[in-house]
């Protein structure tokens, strides 16, 4: 499909469909192509890219209140059902939510909220490895994740697990990130330990 190819070339995963300063929702071009939980994504913005962490993904009917009905036989494969019923891809959509954690200003990446919300229909891409490294090297943005009500500790852990892969020395990164978390969760050792357990290699 032409649209798919274009989106692959541009590395675009979706467009913003709803935005606040601290959070936005985006719709994927294709069903089930949302980025993984915790992925750092970049949103096009004339005042400088906005960076966010994917905190939730949802696939549902395009019409609110009209839920899909699963009355196919038990032996039918989920992918096969979509292949056999191409109209379903138009009746369903995949969206994801992301928490804004940073933006690019004139003097580089700033790890706090941007002055304005992302624009509607702005394109969303996954962050490049270089940007991920830059952002997570000193992960001050963890504070925004921790205070955003909609992000669970799982999102933080997922984000750090993914980020570790783009660092040359993932173990060193995990320790550094752990210490950054410690600075924020020093008052709550149990919660901290739970997150640390899920990011350790």
């Amino acid at each position: 499909m032409a649209l798919d190819r274009i989106s692959e070339e541009l590395d675009v995963i979706g467009r913003v469909i709803e935005a606040k300063v601290a959070q936005f929702s985006a719709e994927c071009y294709e069903l089930h192509t949302a980025p993984d939980l915790g992925t750092l994504v970049a949103v096009e913005n004339p005042r400088g890219e906005i960076y966010a962490v994917v905190c939730d993904v949802m696939t549902a009917s395009v019409e609110p209140g009209r839920r899909p009905v699963a009355h196919m036989p038990p032996d039918a494969d989920a992918d096969a059902i979509l292949e056999d019923n191409p109209q379903l891809k138009l009746l369903l959509k995949t969206t994801f939510e992301a928490i804004v954690v940073a933006f690019r200003a004139n003097d580089g990446i700033r790890q706090h909220l941007p002055p304005a919300a992302a624009r509607i229909f702005a394109r969303v891409r996954p962050c490049s490895a270089a940007v991920v490294r830059q952002l997570t090297d000193e992960p001050q943005f963890l504070k925004l994740l921790l205070t955003a009500g909609s992000a669970s500790d799982e999102v933080i852990a997922a984000c750090l697990r993914q980020a570790a892969e783009s660092h040359l020395d993932p173990n060193r990164f995990r320790v550094r990130a752990g210490k950054a978390l410690l600075g924020l969760l020093g008052h709550d050792p149990d919660r901290l330990t739970a997150i640390l357990r899920s990011i350790q290699a």
Binding site: G178, G186, T193, L196
Partner: peptide, 22 residues
């Protein structure tokens, strides 16, 4: 925080993270 010493870290990784900070 007393919690850090009441339950000693289970792994080297957690010990390394908490060392020097917590």
């Amino acid at each position: 925080h007393p919690g850090f010493t009441q339950t000693p870290p289970a792994s080297d990784f957690i010990r390394e993270v908490t060392a020097g900070v917590a």
